[in-house]
C-alpha cells in the first residue's frame, strides 16, 4: 500500500545495527587474510598464482557465508517471536506476506553482500601477494573438478564457481528462513540449516551415486553444483539439477509464507 522500500530499510537496519553482523563480516575477511599471509611467507614458490588461493579461500568462505546467512535468516523471523517484537511489527497497516517478503529480501541482500565482499576481497588481497598473470584453470593445481578438466581461464572459472555456489546458497538460506518461521526458534533454525549445508556437502555426492531414480529428486544431492562446470554428473545435467532445486525452493517458500500468514501470534 505504501512504500515497500521503507520495510526493507527497517529490516536492513535490524541486521546491520547488530554487532554480530559486523563480527561475521570481519571473520569472513579475516579468513582471507589468515590464509593468504601464512601461505605467502611459507611458500618458496614465488610464482604461485593468486587464483590458487582465491579458489581455496572462496570454498571455505562460502561455507562461512552459508552459516552466517543461516544466523541472519534465523534472527530475522524467529527472534521477532522470541523477543515478542513480532506483536508490534504485525499490527501495522501491512499484510503479513509483505512483511515476510521484506525480511526475506533483506536476508538475501545480506548473503549477496557477503558474497560480493568475499569475491572482491579474495581477488584484491591475493593480487597484492601472488602472481597475477592470466592463467588457465588447467594450470592451477587442484582445478580438476568432477570427471573432467575445466577449459578456460581461472578468472572465468572463479566467476562461474561463485554463480554455482550462490544458487545453492539461495536454497540453503531459504531453508534456514523456513525453519526460522515455522519453528520460531533461532537456535533450531541455525543448527538444522548448518547441519544440512555440511551434510549435503559430505553425503550428497555419495547418495548421488546410489542408482535409484528417486535419488535424483532429493534436493541435497544437487546442492553442490560446481561439478557441473565440467559437464554432466552421471546422467544428470545442470539444467535438471537447477530445476530440482527450484521446485524445492518454491515449495519451501510456499510453506513458509503459508505458515506465517496463518499463524496465531500468541504469547
Amino acid at each position: 500500500m505504501y512504500n515497500f522500500s521503507k520495510l526493507l530499510l527497517n529490516e536492513n537496519m535490524k541486521i546491520y545495527l547488530r554487532t554480530r553482523t559486523w563480527i561475521m563480516t570481519g571473520l569472513l575477511l579475516a579468513l582471507v587474510v589468515f590464509m593468504t599471509v601464512p601461505v605467502y611467507f611459507m611458500s618458496k614458490d614465488s610464482a604461485m598464482s593468486m587464483w590458487t588461493l582465491v579458489k581455496y579461500e572462496s570454498a571455505v568462505g562460502y561455507l562461512l557465508i552459508a552459516m552466517f546467512t543461516a544466523v541472519v535468516a534465523a534472527g530475522s523471523v524467529a527472534e521477532e517471536f522470541t523477543s515478542g517484537t513480532i506483536k508490534l511489527l504485525l499490527i501495522r497497516p501491512w499484510m503479513r506476506w509483505k512483511i515476510l517478503l521484506s525480511k526475506y529480501i533483506s536476508v538475501v541482500l545480506f548473503a549477496l553482500l557477503q558474497v560480493v565482499l568475499l569475491y572482491a576481497f579474495t581477488i584484491a588481497f591475493n593480487f597484492l601477494f601472488f602472481d597475477h598473470t592470466n592463467v588457465t584453470a588447467e594450470e592451477i593445481h587442484g582445478f580438476f573438478v568432477g570427471d573432467g578438466q575445466y577449459e578456460g581461464s581461472a578468472a572465468v572459472y572463479n566467476m562461474k564457481y561463485y554463480a554455482m555456489r550462490f544458487i545453492a546458497l539461495l536454497v540453503t538460506s531459504m531453508i534456514a528462513f523456513m525453519l526460522s518461521t515455522v519453528f520460531r526458534s533461532g537456535g533450531l533454525a541455525i543448527g538444522l540449516s548448518i547441519f544440512l549445508v555440511f551434510s549435503s556437502i559430505s553425503i550428497g555426492p555419495i547418495i548421488g551415486l546410489i542408482d535409484y531414480k528417486w535419488v535424483d529428486y532429493l534436493f541435497f544431492v544437487h546442492l553442490d553444483l560446481v561439478p557441473y562446470l565440467t559437464g554432466n554428473v552421471g546422467d544428470r545435467t545442470l539444467g535438471f539439477a537447477i530445476s530440482v532445486l527450484a521446485v524445492y525452493y518454491a515449495l519451501f517458500a510456499a510453506l513458509t509464507w503459508f505458515v506465517f500468514e496463518k499463524r496465531d501470534v500468541g504469547a
Binding site: 521503507k6 527497517n10 523477543s83 497497516p93 504469547a267
Partner: peptide, 28 residues
C-alpha cells in the same frame, strides 16, 4: 489503531529513538 499487547517488547539492541523511527516508517 495503536496498541501494546501484554508487555511492551521493543528491539533491545536499538535505541528508543531508533525503535520509534522503525515504527514511524511503517505508517505514512
Amino acid at each position: 489503531v495503536g496498541a501494546i499487547v501484554e508487555n511492551p517488547e521493543m528491539y533491545k539492541y536499538m535505541t528508543g529513538y531508533q525503535n520509534l523511527v522503525h515504527f514511524a516508517r511503517m505508517v505514512p
